[in-house]
Structures are given as structure tokens and as C-alpha cells.
Amino acid sequence: MLEPMMYVGGAYKHSQLIELVEDLGGYILQKNIMQSEVVLLMLVPINDIPIVEIKSKELLGKLTRAPLTGSEIATVAPTLAYHHLPHLDCDVAEFLRKQGAKTNMVGLARGVGKRICQLTAFERDLINEHDVAVFILGNYEHCIIEKSKKLYEGIEIPIVVTGAPELRTEDVPNATAYVGSFGRILHHLRHAEELRTLDKLAQVIGKVLDDVRVEIAKDPPSVAPPRIKKEIEENIAEIVDNLHPLPITLQMNGVRVKMPYEEYHEQIENIKFVEGVTMKEVARVLPSKMRNFILIKALPKSETGFSI
């Protein structure tokens, strides 16, 4: 079992930590160097965390658990109008990104109103490609409840809803979790109180993702998503020249590869692991709804009978 961790510390000698994690069988997912500081997002085997902790103390860095690491989150706004953007939606997306998640913003075509809101089939499928959907709704209790009754139809992933009133999750139909004190805010979230609300949102999403992890652990994937990422990086040279942010985005039980499906899907399907199996035996390589990208979903152990 791998634990998502974040290391923040000086750039000096940080490569020692990277090597340690890789030697332990963990994965470095993202490395950001900002002047003399480095932020590492990584997956560490749960039993070896104390060793990594000792090393990070030695380097005078800080090691924290970052439950959002390795997940792809959709932040959904009713539309892409001034009512919702740029504040709040972007703030939420950016904040979750800082916590280690990859966020994609989705603006619905007809998501407005409590009676007239709709979700198109395309939007539904696109949102379902993520790990969690965060719906950013407005100010009024009645509207949030009415809207929730039908807007999330067909969405199979956990749904986190935000809004102004303090409601209990049970009161919001179809929602996995609800976070209050947001609402339609038209300024940059920077006051201490607002930042605390964002912290709470990150916490709630972390909890939701942990539940997903527990669920996945019951029937673990045949191949760990970071392993898929590593194999693609090693086998497909063109990924180096890919200019998309995070060309291979990790998800809870798969990855999204930001390369054209038609050109690369066969190459990816035929990647051979050292264990002797090919990618198509342990994962499904699908066309993504997002542009012409590739979506890879790892097959569960119950389907293949083995895990590597």
C-alpha cells in the first residue's frame, strides 16, 4: 500500500530523498523547484514512512501526508460566466492543486437555475473520467437542495458540493459530502476565515479520496497507476516533448495520457512489463472524452487473477 506524501524543504541535497523513495519502491509524482525551495509529491510504501521521515528531518524539510496527491479532480461550475469565474472557482481549483491534486475546470453549458439546469451526456461522461467532482454552487439553501435533486444524474464518482449555507450532507440529495461557507463569492479568497474554509474543503475531499482508496484496496488494480506512468515514460520517447501540463496525469485507478489516441494507443497497449505481461492484459486503454487524449484504466485483480 502506497501513501501519498508531500515533502517541502530546501533544494540542497533533495536528490538524496528522491533516491531513497525510489529505492524503497515508491514513486516521485511531481517535483517543483521554486528558487531554493523544493516541493515533492510522492507515493511512499506505508511501512517505510518512518525511514523517509528520518531522512527528511536530516535535510531539515517537512514531510506531510497529502491525501489529494495522485488524484484528478473536476471542479464544476454551472457556467463559465462572470457569476462564477474567475474568483471562487479558480481559487478552489488552485488551492486543490497546491494540495497535490490535478484539477480540471468544467463549465457546464446549461447548469444554471434550479428548475432548468441540465447535464449533457458529454459533460456527464467527461466528469465521470475524474476521481471526484466538486460542484461549486451558490448562495441559497433552497436552490442548492432543489438543484442537487437532478443535476448530478448519471455521475458515478463521488460528488462534493460547496455552497453558502451550512447544511448537513444528508440534507443535500445525491451528494457524497457538502462544505458550507462558500457561496457565490466575487472576490479573491484571502481572508483567514476564507482560507480556513478552503482548508476544510481540502480535508473533506481528502476524506472522500481515502474512502475511495479503501474501496479500491478491497479489489486492488493489477498494476499500480504510478507504475503505468513510469512504464509509459520509459517506453514512449515523445512524452518528453509533450507540452501539456502533467502529460501523464495520475488517477486513483488509472492514468490520463495527453497524447492523441489514434497515433499512440497501440504502442501503449503493447508496452511490455518486466514481469512478462503487456499493458493491454492489465489495463484498458480507452479514448478519453477530453480532446483526443488516452485514458488508461487498470483492471482489478479479480478480473486478471494477478497483480504485478
Binding site: N139, Y140, E141, A164, P165
Partner: peptide, 18 residues
Amino acid sequence: ECPDATGAKTTRSLILDT
């Protein structure tokens, strides 16, 4: 004026912001 007190508060702040 709004029967929903929280809604009124946030609407007020969003009008001031705009």
C-alpha cells in the same frame, strides 16, 4: 431582503464586491 439569512448575507457581499 431574503427569507434565507445566509443567502442575504452572501448576496450583500457579492453586490458590494461587484
